[in-house]
């Protein structure tokens, strides 16, 4: 249900860890070879640590995200007993397959519900 959302949080968390790791490498590089940037190196290290903490926080946020998706696009297909008339409309409470629902718009024969089915929701 919300596994996609959970996966998204995990991916963001992993991405932040990778960025933090790159920052740590950069900081080490600055410390080793460019001594004039010691202050910047410290800032980078600190930023890396912050990113690590954020990545953990995001990873655990997955725990809180529990919301069911309930949107459905259900179609009721109406047909006629006498002619080839077909009509589609959204499902309404009380609909069931083979329920007679009045006169056909085309030939005044008896129209009934031929099928009820779920179609994918367009995003």
């Amino acid at each position: 249900m919300n596994s996609n959302k959970s996966n998204k949080f995990t991916l963001i968390s992993i991405l932040l860890v990778i960025i933090a790791f790159i920052l740590f490498l950069l900081s080490t590089f600055l410390d080793q070879y460019l001594f004039q940037y010691t202050m910047i190196s410290k800032v980078i290290t600190f930023t890396g640590l912050i990113l690590l903490i954020i990545s953990w926080a995001i990873y655990f946020m997955g725990l809180k995200q529990i919301k069911p998706q309930t949107t459905e696009n259900v179609i009721t297909v109406i047909a006629c007993k006498n002619c080839d008339y077909r009509e589609e409309r959204p499902f309404m409470e009380g609909d069931y397959v083979f329920k007679e629902i009045g006169k056909c718009k085309k030939c005044s024969g008896t129209s009934y519900i031929y099928a009820i089915y779920l179609v994918p929701v367009k995003k």
Partner: peptide, 28 residues
């Protein structure tokens, strides 16, 4: 969990395929 919503609205479910085929055959 998803079945609960379907049951409460009385919509046909995937398992209803057998009865649907039988209904088509016995229609009328």
């Amino acid at each position: 969990f998803k079945a609960l919503k379907t049951f409460s609205s009385g919509k046909p479910i995937g398992d209803g395929l057998g009865p649907l085929v039988a209904s088509r055959l016995m229609f009328g």
